[in-house]
Design a protein around this nucleic acid. Structure first.
Lengths: 196, 196
DNA sequence: GTCTATATAGCGATAGAC
DNA sequence: GTCTATCGCTATATAGAC
């Protein structure tokens, strides 16, 4: 009871993240987000200037969390295959142990793929971040399969990251496989795509 | 000029399909759909009872078109590998030559994955249809890789269909590859996943 | 920093003339 | 079958009291 206060701003961000990831941006109302943290709708505007700013904040937070986890642990002193394995495993594990954040990332990526949904500045930022991830994956893939491989490194890297990215679409927490088991299986699949 | 009339109902459905696929259901207004076919918003209700009915009609149409193309040409008298090749190639080609419809299918599948967006009857219908596709793919995969393979046939089939499904996310019509070239490359990737 | 009350705007959908 | 006008509602966001 002493400091159940907790910073309202952060709790609003988490509530927004969950709502946006469940129903999408347009179908979510600020009233719902406010209610999730025990507030009336107008109180939100003491913390965020607009609903769109909430989307930007939530999306940025989700992308940061993903990249910190997946890319932050990459160790350039390791071999290329080991680095690829780490990227694949962490990508899968992240998707499966942070279903909400992962869904939010799917969502924001979708809104970037489409038009007008997000402020252009943020669209650029997001594209840039995804490029960092894909470029690293492509570089490592190229080292492993060679520069004249068919399909080429970019196509192969895209296939690998797509598989990892979509794992949360069909995975259900209570199901037969643990997240680690799925990560194992997906690294096997990735190795097949790399033909190693 | 003789019969530029064309059945308004169908043109509305196509306009709805495009709008929904571009911006999502909640963010699309009936006014926009009506304007796309040169009508005012209320005229829509002479053809569809509600915005939701337009979504149901558009989604059903899109799913039918996809399944007719991909599954309708499947020939059970062929070998398992040949049938898998056909399914993969047609899936990719369909995604790339019907970008709008493909996006609409992504969308409706997403709304099914989430909750409440669609009438429950339709959610069941869509789940059933996707099961038909995945079940066929899983059966053929199982025949090819065996029932004790690791990862198992369902995981492998899911990976293959996921790759095909997401090809339209990064493909751009004016880019370096034709749809046929992408289909070639993806069948190579699918074979690697099948370890053949 | 939260509340109630309200401004403003846009939505889906209906009524009724043509 | 389409139009204009409008209903009823809900949305985001603001104003001002506490």
């Amino acid at each position: 009871m002493t400091q159940t206060v907790e910073h309202t701003r952060e709790r609003l961000l988490q509530a927004a993240l969950r709502r946006f990831s469940e129903r999408g941006f347009a179908a979510t109302t600020v009233k719902q987000i406010a209610a999730d943290v025990g507030l009336k709708a107008p109180a939100i505007y003491n913390h965020y200037a607009s609903k769109e700013e909430l989307l930007v904040a939530a999306s940025t937070w989700a992308l940061d969390a993903f990249q910190n986890y997946v890319l932050g642990q990459d160790d350039p002193s390791q071999g290329d295959v080991e680095r690829l394995e780490g990227l694949v495993r962490r990508h899968v594990l992240y998707q499966l142990t942070n279903l909400e954040v992962a869904r939010a990332n799917d969502l924001v990526l979708d809104e970037v793929t489409m038009q007008e949904s997000l402020p252009p500045e943020m669209s650029r930022d997001i594209r840039g971040r995804m490029r960092v991830h894909l470029d690293l994956l492509t570089t490592l893939t190229s080292s492993v399969i060679g520069s004249s491989a068919y399909p080429d490194a970019r196509t192969t890297a895209l296939a690998i990251t797509t598989l990892c990215d979509r794992v949360n679409v069909w995975y259900r927490p209570g199901g037969p496989s643990s997240a680690d088991e799925v990560a194992d299986a997906y690294w096997v699949l990735a190795k097949r795509l790399l033909a190693i």
